[in-house]
């Protein structure tokens, strides 16, 4: 094989591999999907759009059709992608208005509690430390709840082992949100969901509370099962 052949062996292999994936995606098209597989997702966020144009990716998309923006996507200053995702997870049986109201009430509670703390504080230094924006608190709280490892059952020699494996960004976000909702839904008299959610979010923001503990428990379990980690391969 020529020198350049050897040099290009790896990237060209990757190219073929990518292409095979691409072909596979066409074959495994979602049944009843209204869009063709090559149609791109919309980029409605103005900052992201700016990035898209700067990186030159927008130039390439000139020739590709784009999906219509969803009905919960907009450029309002109050719009937050993560929050709308969370609202969808809180939602039951399609009652989106109720879910939105619950989450927004929780935000309001957080704001009230933080403001109360803010006014109680005497010095400017103390006040500067208190975060007043509930959306920032929510983002930080979720970040604190995201696990980095998870356990998956793998069968080896007749026995099933709980094997720790790395977790994807999507799955980590899902677990954090799920735990947050489950902890907030625990029945307790006279404390309703929004209030509990507000407490949980504030706790998680400070890296304490049940949800963070749940994450740490999972990490601990992964730590004890680290001997099985090699079962992931082979």
């Amino acid at each position: 094989m020529s020198l350049s052949g050897v040099l290009r062996k790896l990237p060209s292999f990757n190219a073929i591999h990518c292409h095979l994936n691409f072909v596979g995606r066409i074959a495994r098209q979602q049944p009843y999907s209204m869009y063709q597989p090559f149609v791109k997702e919309p980029t409605y966020n103005i900052e992201k759009l700016e990035q898209l144009i700067e990186s030159g990716e927008a130039k390439k998309r000139e020739f590709v059709p784009v999906k219509a923006a969803r009905s919960d996507q907009n450029v309002s200053v109050f719009h937050d992608e993560l929050t709308s995702k969370f609202i969808n997870m809180v939602m039951e049986k399609g009652h989106k208005e109720i879910a939105t109201k619950l989450v927004e009430t929780a935000y309001m509670k957080i704001k009230q509690m933080q403001l109360a703390k803010y006014y109680k504080a005497t010095t400017d230094a103390e006040r500067a430390e208190i975060e007043l924006n509930p959306i920032v608190i929510f983002h930080k709280a979720l970040e604190n709840c995201k696990p980095v490892l998870q356990l998956t059952p793998i069968k080896r020699g007749g026995a099933t082992y709980q094997v720790p494996i790395p977790i994807t960004e999507n799955r980590a976000r899902f677990l954090a949100m799920k735990w947050m909702i489950l902890e907030s839904r625990e029945k307790e008299r006279k404390v309703h969901f929004p209030e509990r959610l507000a407490y949980e979010l504030l706790d998680a923001f400070n890296n304490t509370g049940k949800v963070v503990k749940r994450k740490q428990d999972l990490h601990k379990q992964c730590e004890t099962n680290r001997a099985y980690a090699h079962y992931r391969w082979g």
């Binding site: 209204m34 919309p42 409605y44 927008a58 784009v66 999906k67 219509a68």
Partner: peptide, 18 residues
């Protein structure tokens, strides 16, 4: 117009009840 297209504002939403 191109920015609106990239934001998915100029696309018809073909999704309907299955």
């Amino acid at each position: 117009i191109e920015r609106m297209r990239l934001a998915g504002l100029l696309s018809f939403d073909p999704r309907t009840r299955e």
